[in-house]
Design a protein around this nucleic acid. Structure first.
Length: 574
RNA sequence: GGCCCAUUAGCUCAACGGAUAGAGUAGCGCUCUCCGAAGGCGUUGAUCGGGGUUCGAUUCCCCGAUGGGUCACCA
């Protein structure tokens, strides 16, 4: 398909020799109001170099490029050159491109098969998977989908929090008050119970702390009994996490968490020392990063054990050596900004040039209406409950509306889960937000169900049209649809949004921002609904019907592909 | 207190340094004997304050305000 921005840049460059092509390209904009054209070129900056009034420059450019066949019209308005693309050609091209690419529409080869690592979700073993965890999980999954669509080879890593003194406490508690059956039946809840029990008991019996520390040391040294228990806790926890991942349709290539790197750290402590970066301070070992404004980073504690910054350094090197990544992306809360700045700086000081290929993708905090989340105070919302309630609510709505679906359970699952995912990916990830039941369960307006509804509506139109008509529309669309039926305002607006989807995906990838895709498919859905309202699709005129159906198929395809990038499914009926 | 981030309509959020700052929601009105009303249409309504850079600032810089995060043995 024609890249209009590039074409326009070339045309203007031929007239404006004072600027580089790339500079002209970046100056071309899409006006907010389509009445001012499909593309616009502001000439203010040229005034200085060309020593002419901006409107005059705009007028000259407009006159020179107006004859080109890609334009229907070129106008000069003040300092702007406003360009209107020939509608028929454009719509025909877009429809043809979407139909031809099908599921591949929106994908590209920008990545050229380079390897990218995305680390996301990374919950702590034996702790509840609550609503706060949805962020890394869902944002990370979408970033994976987006990079995959951009032609990268993506490795998905779940960096489990499966290591640390807490496991000494857990094992200690299990030995004193534990029960195997309970753990198997309800792993997280039971293990968490042990953890809290331990903290209660340690008040009365401080010696438990020593016992726990001793157990952890044994675990670190690979004592079979301790390792076996730890492994069991880990497996049981993972089973429970996998239930949620399955509901969300999320998978990983590796579950190598913190424990995986437990034996890989001495090398780096030694290396830091050899490179003269390590200092002793208050019995601990640190790297002083004051001169970078990053404080000090604690590498080993005064008792010699390591901290997670050391594990992150080890993990980054391991990944470079194992995968030779082009980018190593960490989808982790903004609370850890300093932590990431510190260890990436340390890697640079160690001389690892690829340190700058490690990217922290931060996101804001989730809190509850009655304050921050706190497992101990019972202020916690489980992600699984949110998903289940969303599915239940969807079922009720489906029954209310009496929609005929083949399988209410399946449809409710797609829509309910989708609503939660979509809600999560609607805003810029850096924003903090307060979790609200009424908001996740509100399915009106700019929501996942709205977009899915629009998809189902497309599907419904195609069903009503019948197989023959759809087949004909496909053939017509691929051969070049009769676009004179698609030049109405709403048809053209829809086609323009479809055209932009691939660029939107690329932009979302560059910015690690799935919400850019989310907003765009909302725009597409809105635009389709307007088109649907304005135009009668199933008309008697066969040519017109085929043209309109081809546009419907295109919109349906784009919505499905867009939803897939968010990790959502598209129901044919709902 | 130092550093980082946020602040746009009653509420939740958009806006490559560009033209008249856009949506949704809530409120008020329309709109299903006509391709799905989880829809569409209309209407009211906003850039935290003060400086600066620029032809042009919601956007960049400085000062301040408010909110959040973070700052050595947790992750």
């Amino acid at each position: 398909m024609v890249n209009f921005k590039d074409e326009i840049a070339k045309l203007i460059a031929a007239e404006v020799t004072d600027l580089e092509l790339s500079e002209i390209q970046s100056m071309i904009e899409v006006p907010q109001d389509s009445k001012m054209g499909d593309y616009a070129f502001p000439c203010f900056k040229l005034a200085k170099v060309m020593r002419k009034a901006p409107p005059l420059i705009a007028k000259n450019i407009a006159e020179k490029i107006a004859d080109n066949e890609i334009f229907e019209k070129v106008e000069q308005v003040n300092a702007y050159v406003n360009m209107f693309i020939s509608k028929e050609e454009f719509v025909k091209d877009v429809v043809e491109d979407v139909l031809e690419k099908g599921e591949g529409f929106g994908r590209s080869e920008i990545g050229g098969g380079k390897t990218v690592i995305v680390e996301y979700s990374s919950p702590n073993i034996a702790k509840p998977f609550h609503i706060g965890h949805i962020r890394s999980t869902v944002i990370g999954n979408s970033i994976y989908k987006i990079y995959d669509a951009l032609g990268y080879n993506v490795i998905r890593i779940n960096h489990l929090g499966d290591y640390g003194t807490q496991f000494g406490k857990m094992i200690c508690a299990y030995r004193h008050w534990g029960n195997k059956e309970d753990v198997i039946n309800e792993p997280i809840k039971t293990l968490l119970g042990y953890y809290t029990k331990f903290h209660e008991e340690v008040e009365k019996h401080p010696e438990l702390d020593d016992e726990a520390r001793e157990i952890f040391t044994k675990l670190e040294h690979g004592e079979p009994e301790e390792v076996e228990l730890w492994q069991w806790f880990r497996d049981e926890s993972l089973k429970e996490f996998n239930r949620v991942y399955k509901m969300l349709g999320i998978e990983f290539d590796s579950y190598n968490g913190e424990s995986f790197y437990s034996d890989k750290m001495p090398r780096f402590v030694k290396e830091l020392e050899e490179k003269g970066l390590l200092e002793e301070s208050r019995g601990a070992h640190i790297v002083d990063l004051e001169k970078y404004g990053l404080g000090v980073a604690l590498i080993t504690k005064s008792d010699g054990s390591t901290l997670y910054i050391t594990r992150d350094i080890a993990a980054a090197v391991y990944r470079k050596e194992t995968y030779d990544f082009y980018k190593n992306i960490y989808v982790v809360a903004s609370q850890q900004n300093l932590h990431f700045q510190q260890w990436i700086q340390i890697l640079e000081l160690m001389g690892y040039e690829w340190a700058r290929d490690c990217v922290h993708v931060p996101f804001g905090l989730v809190s509850l209406e009655d304050g921050t989340m706190s497992t101990r105070h019972g202020r916690v919302v489980f992600l699984e409950d949110v998903l289940n309630r969303a599915v239940e609510q969807t079922k009720e709505i489906i029954r209310e509306k009496g929609v005929n679906t083949d399988n209410i359970d399946e449809t409710a699952r797609q829509v309910g889960i989708g609503a939660v995912i979509f809600n999560e990916l609607s805003n810029n990830r850096i924003k903090d937000y307060v979790f609200s039941w009424s908001k996740v369960l509100d399915f009106n307006g700019e929501t996942g169900p709205y977009v899915q509804y629009t998809y189902a509506r497309c599907a419904s139109v195609l069903r009503n049209a019948g197989e023959e008509a759809v087949k004909k529309a496909m053939e017509k669309g691929l051969a070049g649809v009769d676009a004179k039926y698609l030049t109405g305002e709403s048809s053209y607006a829809l086609a323009k949004l479809l055209y932009r989807l691939p660029q939107v995906v690329a932009e979302a990838g560059e910015k690690f921002e799935p919400s850019i895709v989310t907003r765009h498919i909302v725009d597409i859905a809105q635009s389709f609904n307007r088109f649907y309202h304005d135009e009668h699709i199933l008309v008697d005129n066969e040519e017109e019907k085929a043209a309109k159906l081809a546009l419907v198929i295109s919109a349906k395809t784009a919505i499905k592909n867009g939803l897939a990038l968010l990790g959502m499914e598209a129901p044919e009926r709902m």
